[in-house]
Amino acid sequence: MDILVSSLAAGLLIGMVLALVALGLTIIFGVMDIVNFAHGEFLMVGMYTGLLTAQSLRIDPLLTLPFAAIVGFVLGVICYVGFVKFLLRGPMVAQLLGTFGLMLFLRNLALLIFGSEDRALHHGLLVGKSFDIGMGVIIPATKLAAAGLSVAAFWAVWILMNRTKIGKALTATALNSQGARYMGIPTERMNALAWGIGGASVTIAGALIVNFWSVNPFIGLLFTMIAFAIVALGGFGSVPGAFFAGLVVGIITEIPGIWDFFTYTFNIRWMANVPMTSFKYMWVYLAYFIIMVVRPRGLFGWKR
């Protein structure tokens, strides 16, 4: 039983972080219909920012979040104003290849600066600590904190999008940018802001993830693909959809643990012979394919 509960708990916790990872992707897509292939590289930037500021300033990794947020916001705005803005005038394929190029650029830049080796945090208030929540279920403190802070960040962005004038203007830009301009909304600035918010939310997620995950210049793709799966599942452009789909995907990544539970509880011999942990992310993509075929606008899609 404990293995089932701890798998589900771990799945939900990582799911909350993954929801924050996907948030920026869905916002950017929602506002200007562009898929950012470099999204995972933004996360990588957040991981390095968290790691390096924690190490160089000798502060707790959790205190690096504001730095990560600022770096992500500035990176997002610069990418939009300096690059993506021009892509939007081109055909769809230029936009796809363009952000793909951005991904390669950021990845190789990281390779140049940091080298290819894995780096990890070894200090910090929470690193190595864990909570025993009963029934033999032990949860690492870093994951618990990352999940809690992710939900807080997600909630803050949701409030910004839904309860403020700027958020309404972003929504209007997303729905009909020409119509928004006729209302006096500066849509170019809204696009830049969407990239800023998208960048900041994913770098915050990165600075949280680096507490329990080592970073290297190639880490981005994994998260880009997970974020794609979440956004597809939750509906392109949907913020609440990203949250719930994040939880679903988090639990899916724990399928190996759940598999083990059934294997050992019911002593099913053939199940024990399947090397489940090596398939961890396969289930995510399987869910992605199924949802794209069965319900292409996602579970909560509101756009189109």
Partner: peptide, 26 residues
């Protein structure tokens, strides 16, 4: 200067009042 286009360009998923309030953006 306000232009009400031929295509209306409403923010269709939003409510009537949300549309009106967006008109007061400035």
């Amino acid at each position: 200067i306000i232009y009400v286009p031929e295509e209306k360009m409403l923010f269709t998923p939003l409510s009537v009042e949300e549309n009106l309030l967006l008109g007061a953006y400035v």
